[in-house]
């Protein structure tokens, strides 16, 4: 099963932000979207999720996403935006419960409560249920939002169809430990049969956790494939306009990206 975009094009006035980008993510895998600032990563994710107006087609598990209602799309995919604010004094429990707001998870309220508590525990916020969201640290808030997103698509596979976790720079505000927690959680979601599509800044985390990578540059897809194929000195140095050296440590075989001096 695939989450596919074909010929995705987005223009703001005369400026083309995305130019006929083809994208495909497979269920069971973590697919990363990487590229320098302004390359169109977030716009691509927003087009795929149905948020940004775009030309081209998006298919979720073979179905045309344009033909779906907001409710049907919400059944297939959940989205964690880059930054989120919340109006009014919600506490953590109430924020995470918003994942159930469209009534998609279960008709049984007891089942909903069970999922909400499990999601809170999953992101390591057990015991914080009664705390106000406004009073959380940046990292805690990001994890609480992730719990809300997880609640929406709690079962990675529903009625034989994979569900999709879409993350926009999910770990940028987090420390190393929580970066790993979130990336492992995403990987587990994929291993359980769901699909993960993540916009990533950190190339080394990407190399550690992504099964496939799409490298964007100036609104165009440069390369896509396994990190070991996409991450090479020439392509990364050109796209990021910064000399980098990709190393392969002998122990785990994954590529490792080291910026070089820009003199």
């Amino acid at each position: 099963m695939l989450y596919e975009g074909r010929g995705i094009t987005v223009s703001y006035g005369t400026r083309t932000v995305l130019d006929r980008v083809d994208f495909a993510a497979r269920a069971g895998e973590v697919t990363a979207i990487v590229g320098p600032n302004g390359s169109g990563k977030t716009t691509l994710l927003r087009s795929l999720s149905g948020e940004a107006a775009h030309a081209g087609q998006v298919h979720i598990n073979g179905q045309d996403a344009e033909a779906m209602s907001a409710r049907e799309r919400a059944l297939h995919r959940a989205v964690l935006p880059q930054s989120g604010s919340i109006a009014f004094p919600f506490n953590v429990l109430e924020l995470v419960r918003l994942g159930l707001v469209a009534g998609l998870a279960s008709a049984d309220p007891g089942e909903g409560d069970r999922i909400v508590l499990a999601a809170i525990a999953r992101v390591g916020l057990k015991g914080c249920e009664a705390r106000m969201v406004q009073e959380l640290s940046g990292g805690e808030r990001q994890r609480a939002q992730l719990a809300r997103v997880l609640v929406q698509i709690w079962q990675p596979v529903l009625a034989g169809q994979p569900r999709w976790l879409m993350l926009d720079e999910p770990v940028s505000a987090l420390d190393i430990r929580h970066q790993l927690t979130i990336m492992r959680l995403s990987q587990d979601y994929a291993r359980a049969g769901g699909g993960v599509i993540a916009v990533m800044h950190d190339l080394n985390l990407t190399a550690m956790f992504a099964d496939r990578v799409s490298l964007l540059y100036a609104g165009k897809l440069q390369r896509s494939g396994a990190p070991s194929e996409v991450f090479n000195d020439r392509d990364l140095s050109a796209c990021y306009n910064c000399p980098v050296r990709v190393n392969t440590p002998p122990d785990n075989g994954g590529p490792w990206v080291l910026p070089q001096s820009m003199v």
């Binding site: 907001a70 409710r71 919400a74 989205v79 707001v101 469209a102 998609l104 929406q152």
Partner: peptide
């Protein structure tokens, strides 16, 4: 009531959650 709860997170997130904003 449910759509207004979702809207506390902003219009685009409410749409992601399945609300016809």
């Amino acid at each position: 009531s449910r759509p207004l709860d979702a809207l506390a997170l902003g219009e685009s997130v409410a749409a992601h959650l399945g609300i016809d904003t």
